[in-house]
């Protein structure tokens, strides 16, 4: 499967090993998105568990939308393989959220395709993030820059 939506963590190394098996692979580009610290103060270790992120998604649509992004990518660039893994559920600060990996014969195609995919994921893949910080919680707002980045393609 080139597109996976899962609750559990993933391994970049494992994905790279899969992509390099293709004898046409000359380059592999990868992007990983992490949960960055969204709290206002530096938490001490005991309080770390009070801060987390919940990622909700639209199960019937999510894979479909990721596959559509992959198809659009393949129309634009000559890539060999594409892997998109996106997690949902409860994640802690520093956890991996999303992996995009692209292989191609030459690096330029992979660089462009990888950026294209992550830009589209931000605005077109039906995920919503909610941050919890102790008693306080808030839905993450859409970033206007993300919409502009996607629209420039």
């Amino acid at each position: 499967m080139s597109v996976i939506v899962q609750e559990s963590d993933f391994s970049l190394q494992q994905v790279i090993e899969e992509l390099r098996k293709n004898p046409n692979t000359g380059a592999v580009l990868s992007f990983i998105g992490y949960v960055r610290n969204f709290t206002n103060i530096t938490k001490d270790i005991e309080k770390k568990n009070e801060s987390f992120m919940e990622i909700e998604h639209y199960p019937a649509m999510t894979e479909k939308s990721l596959m559509a992004i992959e198809s659009k990518t393949r129309l634009k660039w000559q890539v060999s393989d594409v892997r998109i893994i996106h997690r949902y559920g409860k994640l802690e600060i520093n956890d991996q959220i999303v992996l995009v990996a692209v292989s191609s014969e030459h690096r330029k195609e992979a660089f462009m395709a990888c950026e294209y995919i992550i830009d589209y994921l931000k605005t077109d893949a039906p995920f919503w993030k909610k941050e919890f910080d102790g008693e306080v919680s808030r839905w993450v707002n859409v970033n206007i820059d993300d919409i502009e980045k996607r629209n420039k393609w």
Binding site: G33, K122, T123, F127, W128, V142
Partner: peptide, 12 residues
């Protein structure tokens, strides 16, 4: 048909 309503997506 199925219609879904939601706030702007924050994927990735």
């Amino acid at each position: 048909d199925e219609i879904a309503f939601f706030p702007p997506i924050t994927g990735g």
